[in-house]
């Protein structure tokens, strides 16, 4: 499964902010770290702000803070703001989809989508931060 760019940036932005909710994260720093334009990032952040996950801070530098519940918000909650997980053409939308072969393939793909949804829906931001921390520890240079 591949995430669209906006979705991926949204998840990274939330993880940056949720790792320390008291800290104000500077959008320009996040844009630089993940290789996106500030303009592109700003559009994603506005969307996250509209649903109450981030709160923007005015003033010099302009930043944002995570204001969601890290133990309840899941990756699926964030992903579905930007894309429809498992969206498939409706039966009959294409000639292929209307065939028995097309329907058979769609059934298998739906199984994959359901699993993807279950995984994304079961990982909270708090859990994801733990996974990130483990990655950080495993890639830390030996002292």
């Amino acid at each position: 499964m591949r995430l669209q760019k906006n979705t991926s940036i949204a998840l990274c932005s939330i993880l940056e902010a949720a790792s320390d909710p008291a800290r104000q994260v500077v959008a320009a720093d996040v844009a630089e770290k993940y290789g996106v334009s500030v303009h592109h990032l700003a559009k994603v952040l506005r969307q996250l702000g509209r649903v109450g996950l981030l709160e923007s801070a005015r003033g010099v530098g302009g930043g944002y803070r995570f204001v969601g519940n890290a133990r309840r918000v899941t990756l699926l909650d964030v992903v579905e703001l930007f894309e429809d997980v498992g969206a498939r053409p409706a039966e009959g939308a294409t000639r292929e989809a209307a065939t028995d072969e097309g329907r058979g393939i769609a059934r298998v793909l739906a199984e994959i989508d359901e699993t993807a949804k279950a995984v994304l829906g079961s990982i909270t931001i708090a859990t994801m931060l733990r996974i990130v921390a483990r990655e950080r520890a495993s890639h830390a240079p030996p002292r």
Binding site: R71, T74, E114, T115, A118, V119, G121, S122, I123, T124, A126, T127, R130
Partner: peptide
């Protein structure tokens, strides 16, 4: 159950993976 997100989220929070 695949749709039991609450309980699955609990086990995930305990570092359990697929």
């Amino acid at each position: 159950a695949r749709d039991d997100h609450l309980v699955m989220a609990f086990f995930r929070s305990q570092d359990m993976m697929a």
